[in-house]
Structures are given as C-alpha cells and as structure tokens.
C-alpha cells in the first residue's frame, strides 16, 4: 500500500510517501502505526503518540481502529488546521 505523511509527521519521518507491504497481523490503522514505528528512528519519533495522529484511507478520514481491508492509500497526519 502507498503511505502518505503530512505536516510534522512528514518532517519527523523525513519523507512524504513510501510504499509498504505490512504483514497480515497489521489489521487496522493503529496496528499499521505501531508497525511503522519500527522502520526508523524518524518513524518512531513521528508515531510515538498515536493519540495525536489522524488518518485517512483512500482519501476518507477514518478513526484509528478502522480496518485496512484492501486500502490502496493510507495517510497519517496531525489534526487539521486550515481556514
């Protein structure tokens, strides 16, 4: 699946997007965040407080317990601050 990162999540990880193939045990967004945190020190720093993160699956906002299913694109980012 394709992952997208925005704002300080992107900055701390050091990249804006990457392609990953998580193991089957990664079922929902929270699992994915936990699994991604092990990829690098930047991932660990960006993802260490899941409560401060929001997510979208295929460009729709979802709660962190949302199942990944056949998601093609998952985005992880801080709460939005537009307007």
């Amino acid at each position: 699946m394709d992952l997208l990162y925005f704002a300080w999540v992107r900055e701390r990880i050091g990249i804006g997007h990457e392609h990953v193939d998580p193991p089957e045990a990664v079922r929902n967004v929270a699992d994915l965040i936990c699994w991604l945190a092990g990829r690098s020190s930047g991932h660990a720093e960006a993802l260490r407080e899941p409560g401060k993160l929001r997510a979208a699956i295929d460009q729709k906002f979802v709660p962190l317990d949302a199942l990944l299913g056949n998601a093609k694109e998952v985005a992880i980012f801080p709460p939005v601050t537009g307007g």
Binding site: F6, A56, F77, P78, V80, T81, G82, G83
Partner: peptide
C-alpha cells in the same frame, strides 16, 4: 466545517 473537515495544515 472547512476548518475541521478539510486536510490543511498551517505552519
């Protein structure tokens, strides 16, 4: 609704 629903981030 734009402020809470649209994916923008300010720095």
């Amino acid at each position: 609704r734009l402020k809470t629903d649209a994916p923008f981030w300010k720095r």
